[in-house]
Amino acid sequence: MTFSSKLLLFGEHTILRGSAALALPLPLFSGTWAYSTPENAPALQRNLEEWCQYLAEQQSKGALGVELDLSRFREDLAAGLYFDSNIPNGYGAGSSGALCAALYARYALQPIERTDAARYPELKRILGQMESFFHGSSSGTDPLIVYLNQPVLLQADGSIQTLEVPDWPIASDGYQFFLLDTSIQRSTAPWVNLFLERCNEVAYLQSIQQELIPLTEQAIAGFRAGDWPGLFEKWENLSALQKVNFAPMIPESFQALWAEGLKGGHFALKLCGAGGGGFLLGMGRTGHLPSNAILLERIANSE
C-alpha cells in the first residue's frame, strides 16, 4: 500500500485566524514499506529505531491514545524494513505525515476506520502525537490527510469533513495548477511563529481578517465548484495579498517571478504551506506557465 504526499491548497496560516483550509493527498510523491538486506537496512531506516522507542514510551504513559504492535515493528526493523519514499523532506509535502500514516495503518491493533468521520478529531490527535517525534509538536493534519487519502476541509473550530472535489483543471480547460521547486528545505514552526507575531499588529490582523480570510473562503468555494476562470481571479487576488502580507515567507530568488506573474496576468503564485522554501503553488493559463513548472495533472482524490 502506498501513502501519498499532501498538498495544502488553501488556508495556509489563515486557518490559525478563523478561516477554513482545504488539503488534498498529492499522488505526485509517495512512500511505501519495503525490505532491504540487514547490512543495508540501517542506512535506509535512519531514525526509525529511535522513533519506535519514542512511541513505546508514549504508549507506556498512555499518551498515545492507540495500541501499536511495536514488538512486531521492532522485529520487522531487524528483518530490514524501511520506508521507501520520494516525498521531499522539509518541503511541507508531508514526508513525516506519510510515514506516520503508514505505521498507523500497519501496526495499530484497533485502528479507527477511514469511514468513521465522528472519530476524525481523535484520529488527528493520535497521529499528531506520533508525528511530534519529528517536529517537537504536530497538529496531526498531515498524517490525517495521508491516512484518509481524501480531500479534507478543515475548519478553525476543529471540525473535519472529507469532500468530493472536481478533477484538476487540465490544459484543455485553459488553466492548470503547478508547483515550483525553490530548492530550499525549511521548517514550518519559524514561519508560523512569524505570522502569529505579525497578527499582534492591528493593521496586519485587520488585513488578514477583512481581506485574506474572506478571499480564502471564496477560493475554496470556487475550487469545489470547478469554476476555473472564477478561481483564477481569486487566485490572482490571493497572490497579490500574500505578496504584501507574507513577503518574508517568499524566497528572495522567487520574488521577481511572483511579481512577473501578477503583472502579466498569465499565472499567479501563492505559498504552498508555511512558506520560506519548499514548493510554491501556482495556477496559470495554459501555455503561459513558468518554464520550470511541475504540472499537477491528476486528481488528488481516492478511488
Rank of each mutant, 00 (worst) to 15 (best):
L7F: 05
L8Q: 03
G11H: 12
T14I: 09
A21S: 12
L22Y: 14
L22D: 09
A23I: 13
L24H: 04
P27V: 09
L28H: 14
L28C: 05
A34Q: 14
Y35T: 08
N40P: 00
P42A: 03
N47M: 01
E49N: 10
E50H: 03
Q53C: 09
Y54T: 02
A56T: 04
E57T: 04
Q59N: 04
S60C: 10
A63E: 06
L64Q: 02
E67C: 06
E67H: 08
L68C: 03
A79G: 04
L81H: 13
D84P: 04
N89K: 14
G97W: 11
A98T: 05
L99P: 02
Y107F: 15
Y107L: 08
L109C: 04
I112Q: 03
I112P: 00
R114P: 02
D116V: 01
A118F: 00
G128C: 05
Q129T: 07
L144K: 01
Q150A: 12
P151H: 10
Q155A: 04
A156C: 04
S159N: 06
S159L: 08
I160A: 00
T162L: 10
L163C: 07
E164W: 06
P166D: 02
D167F: 01
D167T: 09
W168T: 08
Y175N: 03
F178I: 07
L179H: 10
L179V: 08
L179M: 12
I184C: 12
Q185Y: 12
N193G: 01
N193Y: 00
L196F: 00
C199E: 00
N200S: 09
L205S: 07
S207V: 05
Q210T: 04
P214V: 15
Q218M: 14
A219F: 15
I220P: 01
R224G: 04
R224V: 11
R224N: 09
A225C: 13
G226H: 11
D227R: 07
P229Q: 14
W235L: 08
E236F: 10
N237H: 13
L238E: 05
A240I: 11
N245P: 00
F246G: 01
A247V: 11
W258G: 04
W258I: 12
A259K: 02
G261E: 09
G261W: 13
L262I: 10
K263Y: 02
G265A: 06
G275T: 08
G278P: 11
G284D: 06
R285F: 02
T286H: 03
T286K: 04
G287A: 09
H288Y: 14
H288S: 14
S291R: 15
A293F: 15
A293M: 09
L296G: 02
R298G: 00
